[in-house]
Design a protein around this nucleic acid. Sequence first.
DNA 1: ACCTGAACACCGTTCAAGT
DNA 2: ACCTGAACACCGTTCAAGT
Lengths: 229, 229
Amino acid sequence: MAGVRGGSGPGQQVGLSRPRVLRGAVAIADERGLAALTMRSLAESLGVEAMSLYHHVANKEAVLDGLVEVVMAEIEEAVAGLDAPAPEDDWQRAMRMRVLAAREVLVRHPWAPSVFETRTGTSLAVARYFDGVLGLMRRGGFSYELGHRALHALGSRALGFSQELFEPDGIEAPEEALAAMAEEVPHLVAMIADASHGGAVLGWCDYQAEFEFGLDLILDGLERLRAAG
Amino acid sequence: MAGVRGGSGPGQQVGLSRPRVLRGAVAIADERGLAALTMRSLAESLGVEAMSLYHHVANKEAVLDGLVEVVMAEIEEAVAGLDAPAPEDDWQRAMRMRVLAAREVLVRHPWAPSVFETRTGTSLAVARYFDGVLGLMRRGGFSYELGHRALHALGSRALGFSQELFEPDGIEAPEEALAAMAEEVPHLVAMIADASHGGAVLGWCDYQAEFEFGLDLILDGLERLRAAG
DNA sequence: ACCTGAACACCGTTCAAGT
DNA sequence: ACCTGAACACCGTTCAAGT
């Protein structure tokens, strides 16, 4: 047959490696979503059989752990490139910039929160990031005790995302259904009606603005506690 | 063969039904974890073949949706049984009690947050709960606009849980590893050393206390904004 | 050392057949 | 109307075999 070796298909690799496997995994998750990432699809995208992957990663769990590493590396890079004030001068602004930089990375990898959520053990990469957050607060005048509480209070927000269990946007039913809804969730319906006075109706939630609101609420509260000693 | 019909095995049912299927699903998740919940294991626990389930639920997604309904019903019941102040008198205390009541339900179903996270669409049961939260804030003097922002700021905390991406507890390595860790995450190591002065070393995170701290941080901030008009 | 084909033990789900 | 057996199209993973 023709093309015995030198084909230019997706399997153009000179040899597999852990970084190459992880880069392939990120590409699939970015392009086709997390559900499309299987050992078989990953192997195929690398021009190799599924079983070959096991020479470079222990199993699929290890691939997911690797995805966390990749994302955290991108976040660390984004944070390093920041022109933030010294925490001694303005810890709150420094923290805000850090969190929003992390958030920008996550926007590029919308699957990332789901992967973070499934990881049980504490990854070193994540621990390093939180170590940086704690270090920032220390330089900003936090005691270890308050810094500890702050880490818990921030939770996933420190990494740039929050859990939106309920999206008011989801309520915007097609008019007729709204009347039926009004009995079940009167306050939500009224809230939407109130918001539509301004003009915007559908897609009226500005998630970035809401994220920043919640973040500032917490940071303001922490600053108050810090200042109070 | 003996025991043609009247056996007293797990399949003691007189006939399947959606509620019966969901109750079985909750039981499996409670006892053996979410991963153990498969259509086949669920069927077996009900003394039936897997394919029989499809006469009562559309598919596995519908089972997971049903789990959310069951949990939300338990939460609504817990909230209804609360002896909370009228929101007009003390919305913050009323809200705090509501959230902590929800949290108690979730503690009984540790798999619940994972299920909530995988649900994409807005469930009516969850919408109803958030409608109640918004109603409480309205009675407490919130505008719809601030109430809306409050719902976002609270996020999953309104239902009693928060995402702990990083558990400082996970750091408490077996002494020797700590020295190696000290280079990678110096602030976290120092934080733990600082905390151990008091006495408690391992298992030193009081998650309930940390949850309440974060909740109060947000509620205090919201009250400040509400009072400021 | 690295890659592979075949196979195993699972999944969720469909379908035609039973009562 | 409800339940079932057999089958299908997937998973992740093991194992013995190739180079």
